[in-house]
Design a protein around this nucleic acid. Structure first.
Lengths: 217, 217
DNA sequence: AAATTGTCTATTGTCGACAGTAGACAATAT
DNA sequence: ATATTGTCTACTGTCGACAATAGACAATTT
């Protein structure tokens, strides 16, 4: 399926990457006219892109003043991860019964691969695999509303994870933490699944929030 | 605090009310130029308003084709309510310990008032009180991320509730259903709170989905 | 008749320009 | 020196016009 990308879509992509790369720093104002000149398009598609980024939660908007790169407080970070944990935990508990041996094997395999990628310092691939892991869990879940929310949260998380990941977990821990999730799914105990996934995210949220706090001093 | 409303904000309000009133029907295309002429403003603020409505989930957008009033399938309806139940259930369980006798009394009072409003057929006030009820529960909860999601879902729910509410519950049932939530909060049993609120929403979601299904035949 | 192609039209996508305002800074008054 | 007021500037808000395109419909081909 081919999809013609409008300028707006390309601008969204561009800004997102600039933020990821750190070329646009938290709290920094994103000036429409500047970008317009830089990218060689008019302000209209820039504005539309910014609106989208606002709804994604990556840009904060103050009427008549401007658009600013989001600057997450430690509390915001914890909130983002917590919310993600609540939603994904519920989703996983709903679809757990769909998982047979094959699917579980595949998930366990991913856990190992995560360790390898972490050992090799391949953070981009690690994040991609993380996405794949979560998508695999959601594969059979058809609550598009909930999934849309988790997608938003996922993008937001990446922002922080890509910055702090080396300080978070050892490669072995990454593997074990995800295996724990698969174990829970295997148990088919819905309560356990929810709890495990919630904790998975809350732990990471707390860690990153702490790092951010220390850095903010 | 005074807030200057931009045209965009007023247009959002206008379109939302048109949808609520049924002047804009599901699946109907919202044409920028039409609205522009009707409201006497240029297309720019109209477009911005539409973007916002898209992010609120009230308008669906097909690139290069147009903006359409959302047409929720029965499944979508159930999903919306389910997601809301998951999020609000968790939130309520988190803040339950903050509720003392005063707060609980107030909540019980609201339940009674809901019955009265339902008996009088005052659906607008009923919806407002419903919001107040939920806001009261969230008062001490500071996960802005989660609250933002529930706000979105709440707006979406209103769309359906305002259409179907007379067919959903008897005045007495409305009171009892909400009292059950307060009872759960009073118990301080976090698990029970989550479960109660989830069910509260899922039940309504299922009912509305069913009504929608029958109507769609 | 059915399928393909071409044309037209209504609608969205983008543009450049101007209007209005928030915030900074200078000028003035106390 | 501090507080108030006025001015300026850079930015967002809005505008009207034009470009591009999806979808409908007509013309053409088989």
């Amino acid at each position: 399926m081919i999809q013609k990308a409008t300028y707006k879509d390309q601008v969204v992509e561009f800004i997102y990457k600039e933020i990821l790369k750190g070329n646009l720093k938290p709290k920094e104002q994103i000036k429409e006219s500047n970008l317009s000149e830089t990218l060689g398009v008019s302000r209209a598609p820039i504005r539309e892109a910014l609106r989208e980024l606002i709804s994604m939660g990556l840009v904060e908007y103050v009427p008549r003043v401007g658009n600013f790169v989001i600057d997450l407080t430690p509390k915001d970070i914890l909130n983002t991860y917590t919310t993600r944990g609540v939603l994904e935990g519920y989703a996983a508990s709903c679809v757990s019964k769909l998982f047979g041996k094959n699917e579980l094997e595949k998930l366990y395999g991913m856990c190992e691969k995560m360790r390898h990628l972490a050992e090799g310092g391949e953070n981009v691939k690690l994040i991609d695999l993380g996405d794949e892991f979560h998508n695999a869990i959601f594969a059979g879940y058809d609550n598009t509303q909930l999934v849309k929310f988790t997608d938003t949260l996922s993008i937001k998380s990446h922002l922080m994870f890509s910055k702090y990941w080396p300080k978070l977990y050892l490669p072995n821990q990454i593997e074990q933490r995800h295996k724990k999730i698969v174990d829970a799914i295997e148990s088919k105990d819905r309560q356990k699944i929810e709890k495990t996934i919630r904790n998975h995210y809350i732990e990471t949220g707390e860690k990153i929030a702490k790092l951010k706090e220390e850095e903010g001093v």
